[in-house]
Design a binder for these strands. Structure first.
Length: 301
DNA sequence: ATCCGGTGTC
DNA sequence: GACACCGGAT
């Protein structure tokens, strides 16, 4: 009789203590899981929950979202941040309708080909929506595996192929068990094995954690530079988008000019919004959220 | 004032 | 591989 494995210990802990998140409920559709994963890409759980519920109430299927305008997707996105994700999610819905008859695909290569879906999200959907056996490595999983298995601090800002391999080796053979283990490892990284103040006293694998055994080394590499928000193009984009979001249809350039004094930076931010497909010019002196007021795009000058 | 994070682009 | 991208929590 052997010791319980890493996956067994973490999965048992997860089954007993997991947060009750709505996208983890039985019967949640693959589309709803995909929406949750895209929202969770850059936004904390507590802020995603209400937005996810409202989004799926309005657009329960990819086809429903595909038929609506980018402008409405941007408005429904609310203040989740990184609103390009809203436009990509709608483009993703269009692609699902066009390529897959409105059904979220279950193959990794097909998922990866969708707008806004990268290596993490493709594996998360294949695993959590379709019960397949894949390593699902986000920043939390990477940190947990680096610590507990390699005994090292987190390897850095990107997921390496080696991280995928190391995680795969932890997964049970049965796909359903592997999916549960992946959810459990993510939960562990989000709740206990956090970056700064890990709660090892409550950790289900504290007894077999290589990082704990070896003295909990801190990361050695260059710490990532702090990113500011105030005064950046990001802030200006947010201000411009705020005006457009609360207005139906075109907004005069003059009104947009009032949100930020620096002409050069304001113009750069507005151009960026257009490039990103969030905003489009209407005539020569006004702008609107993409597709706002109907699909017919403005005449290209 | 600092922290957090996938994807796409260059 | 560096960088841009958002906003709220702490």
């Amino acid at each position: 009789m052997s010791e319980p494995t890493f996956a067994t210990l973490v999965s048992r802990w997860y089954s007993e203590t997991a947060r009750d998140l709505p996208w983890r409920h039985p019967g949640v559709s693959p589309w709803a899981i995909l929406v949750s994963e895209v929202m969770l890409q850059q936004t904390p759980v507590v802020r995603v929950v209400p937005a996810w519920q409202a989004w799926l109430e309005r657009w329960p299927t990819p086809a429903a979202l595909a038929e609506d305008t980018p402008a409405e997707a941007i408005r429904m996105w609310g203040r989740l941040g990184y609103p390009r994700r809203a436009v990509r999610l709608r483009e993703c819905a269009v692609a699902i309708v066009e390529r897959h008859a409105g059904v979220v695909p279950d193959r990794l290569d097909q998922l990866l080909a969708l707008p806004g879906v990268g290596t993490y999200t493709a594996r998360a959907v294949a695993t959590f929506a379709y019960g397949q056996r894949h390593p699902v490595v986000d920043t939390n999983v990477r940190r947990v595996v680096c610590r507990a298995i390699a005994g090292e601090p987190d390897a850095g800002p990107t997921t390496r192929p080696a991280d995928l391999v190391a995680t795969e080796e932890l997964l049970p053979v049965e796909p359903a068990d592997a999916a549960l283990a992946s959810a459990a490892i993510m939960e562990l990284g989000a709740v206990l094995c956090v970056a700064r103040s890990p709660r090892c006293d409550r950790c289900p694998v504290a007894s077999i954690c290589a990082w704990r055994t070896s003295g909990q080394a801190a990361p050695t590499g260059p710490s990532r530079r702090p990113q500011r928000y105030a005064g950046t193009d990001r802030q200006v984009r947010g201000l411009l988008l705020g005006v457009l979001r609360e207005t139906t249809g075109p907004v005069d350039r003059q009104r947009l000019d009032q949100v930020w004094a620096d002409d050069v930076q304001r113009a750069r931010a507005l151009a960026g919004l257009v490039t990103d497909g969030l905003v489009e010019p209407v005539g020569t002196a006004s702008f609107r959220l993409a597709g706002d007021g109907g699909p017919p795009a403005p005449a290209v000058v």
